[in-house]
Amino acid sequence: MNKRILSVGMAALAVAGLTLGATGCASTKKLSIAFVMGAESDPFFQAMKVGATDEAAAEGVDLIWQGDPSAYDVATQVPIVDNVIAQKPDGLVLIPTDPNGLQASSDKAVAAGIAVANVDTHTADTTDAVITITGDNADGGAKAADAIAGAIGYKAGKSYQVVVGLTSATATTNVGRLDGFKAQVAAKYPGIKIVDVAYSASNPQTANSNVNNWLTKYPNLSGIFAIDGTNASGAAAALQAKNLVGKIALVGYDAYPANVELVKTGVFTALIAQDPAAEARLAIKTLVDYIKNGTKPSNHDVVIPNVTIDKNTSASDLKKYTYVAAK
């Protein structure tokens, strides 16, 4: 019921906006920006929501936050996007769950006069998008390699054993990070050998079991790259339980508050963090600029690099990058 009232209200607002826009008084009317993300349950999108909400409030625009509660899935996302387009927002920030699957919906939005921005991932053809902003998983993998090499005191000519905990063979973030990690190792640290990989199937207990077995199988193990939050949790528990904190380098991914605490206590050598809030802020700011003033961004394809969080990271940066659950 509320939703219907809201959508009728939105439509009325949008119509009013268009009418006023035609008479040149758009700045007095409140803009609406729709934000369709991947999966609400993912802390990554929770952190993104925080950035989006802050920026929308700062710009004085209405934010329509939408997306599937738990499934990162093209099949559930397409109808959500189509519904949002029907509400005629002024702008649409889209995190396409599939580059081809969301192309038609994106085109439909552009045809309806809605300014579109792609965040985190992008549709196959981004020419009509005002901006595309992506995180760089390969860069994150490379940074993880640097962090492990630093922690084990890498010296050329010596050999080191490293394992990688994955979630599955197909998770796109896993693939990008692993490729970046391997490329960096091959280029800069030829002495590091990736001796094994295993899947957690999204369960930290399984990730924990994998690391425990590796610790038996590779008594001389130098480092572990835990490629996402699930693997990071499982690996951290294994090292703590076996009293191997500080003896084996552990680089994790995603700045969950719990894991950031473990950087401070030395369980994690380093965490590689994305900055989802920054991606969301930039997207909204760019769209509002474009809608109000017609200004296009100087750079159409923006890549927001990952950051390395370790013991030397300043308190203010820690605060900035730690994921916060949206209320």
């Binding site: 802390p43 929770q46 509660p69 719990a258 894991n259 605490e261 949206a326």
Partner: peptide
């Protein structure tokens, strides 16, 4: 599982 996500904000509670 939905309740677990809502209560935890999708993140581990250490």
């Amino acid at each position: 599982s939905g309740m677990a996500i809502i209560i935890s904000g999708g993140m581990p509670l250490q």
